[in-house]
Amino acid sequence: MKEELRREFQAATDSLTAKAIEGVSALVDVTLPGRRAPRGHLHPITQIAEEICTIFSTLGFRVVEGPEVELDYYNFEALNMPKDHPARDIQDTFYISDNVVLRTHTSPMQIRVMEKQLPPVSVVAPGKVYRPDSDISHTPMFHQVEGLLVDKGVSFGDLKGTLTTFAHQMFGRDTKLRFRPGFFPFTEPSAEVDIQCVICKGDGCRTCSYTGWLEILGSGMVDPEVFKVVGYDLESISGFAFGIGVERIAMLKFGLDDIRVFFENDIRFLRQF
């Protein structure tokens, strides 16, 4: 049956070709789909992480990467979180041994980079991070992009300018931002950065818990204790650091409310990006 149909179709095509040869244009069903090579899709997390890194690369930041199985020293101790520091409690941690953890943030890259070079430092460090949490807004593995700028005369105003540029490029030029005090043991002053809710434009909705604002990243001026650890001269330099949650940005941009779908890898989900 199929073979028969095909033969008929072939015959029709041949006669069309014949007409074409006679100089009469053949009638082609232009609404038939074209012959397409299969097309794949980059994972939405990759797309957003690349977009973030590209924005900062354009500003002059260099991309670096580092280990995910990390020494307690880099993940906590060198970042001004000695054992018994209460800030360790807010970050539950996967332990490999007493001295080795799955990094809970990309911030250890700050230390690893500064240990290897003198200022000026301008890097972004994307990568996977891990915390033992699993619910609609937490997965035990997720992605961050760390940023660090150290040089003479880097100020909190510079931090604001850099992150404002980032938010404008990521979410649009008219995105409103606000900076508010936060706490990270390795920055002082520390700042949480909110953008005006992309869903309700500030009127208040479920996504923004009716505040009109969405937290998109944490940042701050590098704490002098951190400079001490890497042997930088505290008085002659200053710097800022920031950490961006890639899933968070992706969820806001793509309008997702369950973080777990990123790691299910349902092909119908992946094809949407």
């Binding site: 301008s122 700028l149 040089d151 909190f156 105003g157 002053p189 001026m221």
Partner: peptide, 29 residues
């Protein structure tokens, strides 16, 4: 420490009242 006092000053001024500037980033290797 002094850094802690600087943060308190920034808090009282209001983070949103601190001027926005862009750093001059020197290229690195």
């Amino acid at each position: 420490r002094e850094a802690d006092l600087i943060e308190e000053v920034a808090r009282l001024i209001g983070y949103n009242n601190i001027p926005v500037t862009l750093p001059a980033i020197r290229p690195t290797e």
